[in-house]
Design a protein around this nucleic acid. Structure first.
Length: 301
DNA sequence: TACACGTGGTT
DNA sequence: TAACCAAGTGT
């Protein structure tokens, strides 16, 4: 009997416990409704990238009312899409979603693809989102690995305090091994794993007393050790280019007509940084310059 | 692999 | 209050 081996052996996840918990504790989110379209699921997944549910909710509703199908969004101007994106953050997501809608409308008969390969080929859709759409919109069996899932698996299966740096291939294989064989059950299992990470197995102060997996949790078994991996990089914001780009874009979202550069210059006092940011926004296609030299959101003039 | 990319609520 | 955190993607 070698204690070290016993402790380090990865544990599994009790799917029955997890799914029972999900049945009674899952949040009632509109993109989980049985009658929500795959397009609705896709829009939610893009909006939810690095963005809290509470902030997504009203914008998602507005988008689905306004653009119920990919072709509807595809027919809209980029500027109007960026305006409707509002302050969700990372506005390049809005541009990519618009581009994805154009591809879906023109090459997929206005229907969101149901296989991971085709989804991955769409702009703004990566390893996580492709599998999330396949699983949640079409009930497919695919490893859906987001930050919540990585944290839950790190703790419950590997007994670590938290997940280390992401590694797509390793993480996918890791979660694939935990998935139930049955397809619809696997899809529901994926949603449940994410929900557990979002509600119970949270980053700070996990609520272990209410966790359906405590009795089989490797992290509990190991005595809840602290996270020992490499420190996560701290996200600065104040004074960064990201901050300045946000300020510039905010001016343009709130005007209908293109503005003189002077209107943009007032948002930031450092000319060098200000110009560099405006330039990068032009390169990213988030801002467009009119023939007469003014600046506005793209695709409207 | 590491870093840039918005925004705002929570601790 | 500063730091942390939130359903990632593209380069």
């Amino acid at each position: 009997m070698i204690a070290g081996l016993v402790e380090s052996a990865p544990m599994s996840i009790d799917a029955d416990c997890l799914l029972d918990w999900f049945d009674e504790s899952a949040r009632d989110l509109p993109w989980r409704d049985a009658d929500c379209s795959p397009w609705g699921v896709l829009v939610s997944e893009i909006m939810l990238q690095q963005t809290p549910v509470a902030r997504v909710l009203p914008v998602w509703q507005e988008w689905l009312d306004r653009w119920p199908r990919p072709s509807a969004l595809a027919g809209e101007s980029q500027g109007e899409v960026l305006r409707a994106w509002g302050k969700l953050g990372y506005p390049r997501r809005a541009l990519r979603l618009h581009a994805a809608a154009c591809v879906i409308a023109s090459e997929h008969h206005d229907r969101v693809p149901d296989d991971v390969e085709a989804l991955l080929a769409l702009p703004g859709i990566g390893a996580y989102t492709a599998r999330a759409v396949a699983a949640f919109a079409y009930g497919k069996r695919a490893p859906v690995v987001d930050t919540n899932v990585r944290r839950v698996v790190a703790r419950a299966v590997h007994g670590a305090g938290d997940a280390g740096p992401a590694s797509i291939s390793r993480d996918l294989a890791d979660v694939e091994a935990l998935l139930p064989a049955d397809e619809p059950r696997a899809a529901r299992f994926s949603a449940a794993l994410m929900e557990l990470g979002a509600l119970i197995c949270v980053a700070r102060s996990p609520k272990c007393t209410g966790c359906p997996l405590v009795s089989g949790c490797a992290w509990q078994r190991a005595g809840r050790p602290e996270y020992t991996g490499p420190a996560k990089p701290v996200q600065k914001y104040g004074g960064t280019d990201r901050h300045v780009r946000g300020l510039l874009l905010d001016v343009l979202r709130n005007t209908t007509e293109p503005v003189e550069k002077a209107r943009l210059d007032v948002v930031w006092s450092k000319p060098g940084q200000r110009d560099r940011c405006l330039d990068s926004l032009l390169v990213d296609g988030l801002v467009e310059q009119t023939p007469d030299g003014r600046f506005g959101l793209p695709g409207e003039h």
